[in-house]
Write a protein that binds this DNA or RNA. Structure first.
Lengths: 140, 140
DNA sequence: GTGCCTGCAAATTGTTTGCACTTGA
DNA sequence: TCAAGTGCAAACAATTTGCAGGCAC
């Protein structure tokens, strides 16, 4: 019983070929893999010779999001990107020239956010922090 | 010579009725005014009896953004909202139940962001921090 | 006057939905 | 078997663009 079939079942989702394939693609840890758009996943499926419709990709990704298997991000790109949920919260740094995405987590910022919300009489439900960055010239 | 006509000229934009009106709407400081979507601006124009096309609203807002007169935000709402540029950077807290938007600026977080980017060999070009929050019950 | 602007409608892009058909349990 | 899942095409929502006519300078 391979891969994340368990997770699919646990999420109450029937183990079907498109779902398994999409999970596999999200799991494949290529460099720039991770953070894929629906289109990206769709193309990866075609490249893999799988005949899955784009609509299904959207449906499955949305189900995965609801099930907590993936997280959806809306960077400034005009479309959503999806990432496998690892359980560990992190924020993102996106390189504006290469598109490279770096994840990070900073306890100082996290704590500060809580304090700020509280000071305004709110509790944080969720948050989104994205740094748009440019690579500095090497200067070792 | 009223309002921001100067700013329009300075931006190299001809002073036309739609542009002036749209600027006025963005300047009107109603509580929940500020942070308007293209639709919001469009409706405000109609309410004011002005006959401006939605396409023009989009064009003008984009020109304003390019000119640095307004800032575009992409919260998780699926559409962009625009806000008059004040020169002072700030982040946002959006109440998930009321839609209320609170602006804040925290030097600790700002500094930390710089440090983190630097530690990864990047410089920050821009950043976006949005806290999605819920109002806490009053407990004075 | 003339070139920047605008309105309208049509085109795009990203995403969702209706429906007949297929498939996993 | 048979409801859940899928493919396809059509529907949608937000935004952009082409073009003929208008308005600021």
């Amino acid at each position: 019983m391979p891969h994340g079939n368990q997770e699919l079942r646990k999420a109450g989702l029937k183990v079907t070929l498109p779902r398994v394939k999409i999970l596999e693609i999200l799991e494949s840890t290529g460099e720039s893999t991770q953070h894929l758009s629906a289109e990206d996943v769709y193309r990866a499926l075609l490249d893999a010779g799988e005949d899955v419709g784009l609509a299904t990709v959207y449906r499955v990704l949305t189900q995965f999001e609801t099930a907590g298997l993936v997280t959806r991000h809306n960077f400034e790109t005009g479309h959503s990107v999806f990432e496998l949920e690892t359980g560990e919260h992190h924020d993102h740094m996106v390189c504006v020239s290469s598109g490279e995405v770096v994840e990070f987590n900073d306890p100082v910022i996290e704590r500060r956010q809580q304090e700020i919300a509280l000071a305004h009489g709110f509790e944080i439900v969720d948050h989104s922090l994205v740094l748009y960055v440019r690579k500095l010239p090497d200067q070792d």
